[in-house]
Amino acid sequence: MAIDVLEAAHRLGLSAYGVSFHVGSQQANTEAWDGALGSAAAIFGTLAERGIQLKMVNLGGGFPTKYLKDIPAVESYGRSIDAAIRRHFGNRIPETIIEPGRGMVGNAGIIKTEVVLISTKGSDETTRWVFLDIGKFGGLAETMDEAIRYPLATSRDGDEKTPCILAGPTCDSADVLYEKTPYALPVSLEIGDEILIEGTGAYTTTYSAVAFNGFEPLKAYVI
């Protein structure tokens, strides 16, 4: 399909300049770009045979940031991608650009939130539900399906901890952050306590542009 689109662009007098791809967000496999670059090189070759010289490959994003699990060093991504480009393109290295947003700024942000309620679902339930003043609709959209598990810090982290279900403040039943895999939080945690949500420099304020359910969008302070 990419070849057809680029050929159509060429026929219309547009500049068929290059191809782009994305290997998946929070990509921990440094070799993930190899297959995509192989496909890109094949497109370059096919179009060159048809008189269309592409010039650029956009390597996309996917560069991760550290949340709860360690990630490969940025240098290892560079080495793997450089080797893949040379392997597939030989001496005809194209222009390349990357979109490393999360990898650059993910750890540059912290969200300060407050516990607004602690409860259980019933008298025979022992797992606490901890409700915060921020949820999926206030900037933590990437907790959808618990895809991103942010590091949390409290002033009581030295105390005994038990698993908790973490939820947001809205009346929407989808506003639950971590339930499939509960989050260990201090037993001594109280309503009014602050929790710092770390690693929130990417995809948080941008997901909080609407006053959902009357809650103001997430405010950002640059220090």
Rank of each mutant, 00 (worst) to 15 (best):
28 A>L: 15
114 E>T: 15
145 D>N: 12
91 N>V: 04
100 P>A: 13
50 R>P: 02
96 T>V: 15
113 T>S: 13
82 D>K: 11
75 E>L: 13
55 K>Y: 04
76 S>A: 14
33 W>Y: 14
64 P>C: 09
121 K>A: 14
27 Q>N: 14
56 M>K: 09
104 M>H: 07
29 N>T: 09
118 I>G: 05
77 Y>E: 06
53 Q>E: 14
131 F>I: 12
76 S>V: 09
49 E>H: 10
26 Q>Y: 06
87 R>L: 13
56 M>T: 11
139 G>P: 02
62 G>M: 06
34 D>H: 04
72 P>T: 06
80 S>W: 01
142 E>H: 08
122 G>V: 01
48 A>E: 15
111 I>N: 00
82 D>W: 04
86 R>H: 08
37 L>T: 04
139 G>A: 03
123 S>I: 11
68 L>W: 00
42 A>I: 05
128 R>W: 06
25 S>I: 00
51 G>S: 11
129 W>Y: 14
72 P>W: 05
28 A>E: 14
25 S>N: 03
73 A>N: 13
46 T>I: 13
116 V>F: 03
85 I>T: 00
65 T>L: 01
146 E>M: 03
69 K>T: 13
35 G>V: 08
148 I>T: 13
115 V>W: 02
69 K>I: 09
96 T>H: 11
40 A>G: 11
32 A>E: 05
108 A>W: 00
67 Y>N: 06
56 M>C: 12
27 Q>E: 14
93 I>S: 03
